[in-house]
Amino acid sequence: MKACIVVYPGSNCDRDVYHALKYVGVDVNYVGLDDSLDGCDLVVLPGGFSYGDYLRPGAVAAREKISHEVRRAADRGKLILGICNGFQILIEMGLLPGALLRNSSGRFVSKWVRLIVEDVDTPFTRNFKSREVIKLPVAHGYGRYFKTDSAIRVVFKYMDDVNGSDDMIAAVTTEDGRILGMMPHPERAYEKLLGGEDGLKLFTSVVEYLRRNAS
């Protein structure tokens, strides 16, 4: 089982995801824009400010060469996780529906938020309990989820209004549950020392899912 973290110019949570995946014992490596994703069972698009987010968050990164590889991995049914800027990139690529717009406050927001786990039938959330309330950090300026599709699979919802998202949506997935895009940062909550470890369950869910399917 192997995980790959795509490092875009301007990604800045790549190392954080790396540490979190290492922490749960995953074989993980970084992937550049010209690399292949062959052999990756889990592809992570990390948070950050790819290309400075200068046009729209994720817009330029979504059109990089590596996107073909990400699409190819998606077609082959590999698991894909986009966190924060990675979620924005997945949306700009059209792999997930909707749009992520400027927070309704007009400001960047960085804090711990309470979330409800809405869907525990994805490879990413099987270790959570249905409707479980968890705490994860958010840190984004463009996290307001704008819904364009009424039949979407929502995975996490905010318990309080954080950024003006439609239906308080914090994370969505594809019909088959194999591509997850989320604004909160599970990789920042894998150890008690950091103030919480609710993010850990997401990573152990993926690891157990992949181990089971590999054997």
Partner: peptide, 16 residues
């Protein structure tokens, strides 16, 4: 003010 700063990136911040 603090909540406009990403004080957690890097996952080394022990006290907020």
């Amino acid at each position: 003010v603090f909540e406009q700063y990403d004080y957690m990136v890097g996952t080394d911040t022990v006290i907020p």
